[in-house]
Structure formats: structure tokens, C-alpha cells
Amino acid sequence: MHSVPLDHIGIQLYTVRNIMATDPQGTLNALGAVGYATVGVSGLYGHTPERFRAMMDTAGVRAVLTHTSWDAMNADVQRELEIARILGVRYVVVPSLPGSLRTVAGYTHAAAKFQEWGIRCRGAGMKFLFHNHDVDFAKVDGKVLFDVLAERTDARFVNFELDLYWIIKPGYDPVAYFERHPGRFPAFHVKDMAANGSFEDLGYGTIDFPRIFARYAQSGVREYVVEHDTPRDALLTARRGQEYLATVTF
């Protein structure tokens, strides 16, 4: 029987974005007090990277990844890597692609850019990841767009933060992807799904996380990052997520 390592349980700060905007230090402190070891950064809320890092240090949490954007990476990769270095992250993540790229040719172009950025990240001592949504599993001209990214990138430089909700929602099986692309999923967005298909707090929904987590060696997962896009009570959602990951066995 296995469990999630406590020091690899995190939360994407997007989940608590509304309270981060008004009280970032208090929010980070609360997340640390709940038991989170790590966070995924979703913007700096007007603070410098140095100030944001200091707030995380005060709260006793460390950033394992940061979400930047396709446009920001295209504009100035070096600046994004410098921000990531200050934050202390291991993974630099592009969380979505522009709708204008939603073709096989567009995703082929994105894969080539990811390769470039992955090489730059590796040179800076970090790793590059792409985070999926359901649209990335659309089939265009008979090809699943996500597959273009996986097949046209080198695992030495480009891997994936797999959002478990957004791969399951369009009808795909994470385990099948672990089998096809072993070791390429070092981070999970652990997001649960209600019976009606909407977002749900961890452990209160329908996704069989133990089945997915049991393939930890095959997936390559290291970081388990709680996320909920529209929580009613963000800190309650956060507490439930940490408690679920801290106690689930597989």
C-alpha cells in the first residue's frame, strides 16, 4: 500500500485567487497551516518575484511550479526563467494555448516552440511542462491535438502537468496515456468531478484517484497539486484537498 508523500502535496494558487488578491500573506499562511508543503504559482498579484518568494518563505511553503503564458514566453523567455529562478520552482508551465493554434499545424508549431523553451529551461536547471484543458483533447483532422504535442516533443525537454479533470471530462483515460508516454507526467492537477460533470472538492466527486495514483512509477508523477476552478469556500476546498491527498492510499 502506498500514499502520497506529504512533502509533495501542493495547491494551485488559482484555487484561492480571490483571497490571494486581498490578503496574500494571510492566505499563504493559512495554506501552510492546513499542511500544504508546496504551491503552484498563478501570477504574482502585483508583487515582485522577490517579495512573493519572501511571503512563501514566511508561510513555510515552497513553489514547485509557476504558470506563465504562451505570450509571455514568446515575448521574453529569459525574463520568465529569471522570475522562476527567484521563486525557486522546478517546473515552468504554460497552462494553455491560444485558440488560434487549435489545428494540427498550430499544435505542431507549439511543439517546436516547447522544444526550444524546454532546452532553455534545462539549461537554467528547470523543466518545462504544458498543462492541458479539455480542448487539447479535441480531434482535428483525425488527430487528437494533445497527441501532437506528446509525439513531436522530446521527453528530455518537454513534459506535462496533467490536469486529471480536463483529460477525463472529454472521455480520455490518464492511465492509457501513462502507458503510451511513460514518465512524462511529473505533476498532476488533482481536480475532482461531480456527478453532473462540474468541479468538486477532492474526495467528494467521482474520479477514481487511487487507480490513477497507483501508476505513479509509470506516470512519473512527483507533485500532486490540488485545484478547483470555482470553489464556494476556497479555504474549505483547500483543507479538504490536503486531507484527501494526505490520507488516500493506493
Rank of each mutant, 00 (worst) to 15 (best):
V221T: 07
S198A: 12
K139S: 13
D76A: 02
D141G: 01
R53H: 13
D71Y: 00
D136A: 05
S96G: 08
S96T: 13
T66C: 02
F160K: 13
G32D: 02
G125K: 03
Q12W: 10
P174Q: 01
T48D: 05
G205E: 10
R215K: 08
L28I: 09
V34Q: 11
M56C: 09
H67R: 09
A194K: 10
G106W: 09
A110W: 01
M56Q: 09
L44F: 09
V41Q: 04
R240W: 01
F185W: 13
G60C: 00
A105M: 06
D154S: 14
R122I: 05
R211C: 12
G32L: 01
F146D: 00
D233Y: 09
L162Q: 11
A21H: 10
A176H: 07
V135E: 07
T48E: 08
R90E: 15
T237Y: 06
Q242C: 10
K139M: 13
L13S: 01
I83P: 00
L65Q: 13
G43F: 02
Y224N: 12
M126R: 12
V16H: 11
H181T: 00
T206G: 04
R152I: 05
G197L: 08
A112W: 02
D141W: 04
A217L: 12
L65W: 03
A138G: 08
Q242H: 15
L145S: 07
T66M: 06
W70N: 00
G142Q: 04
R222Y: 10
T247W: 03
H8K: 15
V61I: 13
V77A: 15
R122L: 08
D173N: 15
V16E: 11
Y91H: 08
K191F: 06
L81G: 12
F157V: 08
M56P: 02
F114K: 01
L81E: 14
H181F: 15
L202Q: 02
G32H: 02
R79A: 14
G46Y: 00
P5G: 10
A176Y: 08
S42E: 02
T247L: 11
S198F: 05
I207M: 05
V135L: 05
N74W: 04
C121H: 09
F157T: 08
A105H: 05
T38M: 13
E80K: 10
F146P: 03
Q25N: 10
Y36I: 07
D141P: 05
F130H: 03
Y165E: 06
E80S: 08
W166N: 10
L149C: 12
N29E: 11
I11A: 04
L162T: 06
H181D: 03
F188S: 12
L97E: 00
S96P: 01
D163W: 10
K139R: 15
F178L: 09
Y224A: 11
A72K: 14
L81K: 12
S100N: 03
L81N: 13
L101Q: 04
H47F: 09
F250Y: 14
Q242N: 14
V148S: 03
G35S: 01
Q78A: 15
M20F: 07
V4I: 15
G60M: 03
G40L: 09
A238Q: 12
T68A: 02
I11K: 04
K139P: 00
A195K: 15
D233R: 07
M73F: 07
I212L: 11
